[in-house]
């Protein structure tokens, strides 16, 4: 890819990732966060986290299906880090606007409320991934170990979706579409491996010609 194209795509990715936050800041400054601003901020940061996580998990299947898109992987780190950034904003919203920085209230919430426990778990799973996102960390850890650690993103995404389901009222189906998308993306991985294995086997052991 040409350097200038790469720069342009990177800029566009940045703009797309900063956009949801920009909208919130603009809304706060102009009183356009809706009737319940706290809920608006919570929902926007939470759903952006899940959307960005989903996009980052879609990049590998996308380039497997269309090898011409393999350059997409260059943006995975950026998208992943933005997912962590929005997850942190989401957590900060809870700490500041719900718990009012009250440590006792937070401890009680984490112990008592499973959707909060699950959300915090998802954030804690993303934390080491964000911390080891630098090229230096990859080199230091070695590709294999780094890759294994970063498989945690699957677990984080699953925890994030469970957190969403546990937060909505029983019977409400809003988390369904992101759940199906993530399930397909996660399922595509073992399906791809199985398929590759079969292809390899077929190539390695040519079937005995009939008869």
């Amino acid at each position: 890819m040409k350097r200038s194209t790469h720069l342009l795509l990177k800029t566009l990715t940045w703009i797309a990732c900063v956009w949801p936050l920009g909208r919130l800041i603009w809304g706060a400054a102009t009183n356009h966060l809706g009737a319940d601003p706290t809920a608006t901020i919570t929902f926007a940061t939470g759903s952006t986290t899940l959307n960005l996580l989903t996009i980052s998990l879609a990049l590998t299947p996308a380039r497997r299906l269309i090898p011409e898109l393999s350059w997409l992987v260059k943006f995975r780190r950026l998208v992943g880090l933005f997912a962590f950034f929005y997850a942190t904003l989401h957590l900060a919203t809870y700490v500041a606007l719900y718990a009012g920085f009250d440590l006792h209230a937070m401890a009680a919430d984490i112990a008592k409320r499973r959707f909060i426990t699950m959300g915090l778990t998802a954030w804690l799973l993303l934390l080491p991934l964000a911390a080891t996102s630098t090229t230096w960390a990859i080199r230091k850890m070695g590709g294999k170990r780094w890759n294994r650690l970063h498989k945690l993103v699957y677990l984080a995404a699953v925890c994030g979706v469970i957190h969403y389901w546990w937060q909505v009222k029983p019977g409400v189906l809003t988390p369904l579409s992101i759940t199906i998308t993530l399930a397909l993306l996660l399922a595509s991985r073992p399906v791809w491996s199985l398929w590759q294995k079969r292809l390899r086997n077929r190539n390695a052991v040519p079937t005995a010609a009939g008869g």
Partner: peptide, 12 residues
């Protein structure tokens, strides 16, 4: 509770 129609820092 969060009072509707207030700014986010003034709702509680």
């Amino acid at each position: 509770e969060r009072r509707i129609g207030k700014a986010f820092y003034a709702q509680r």
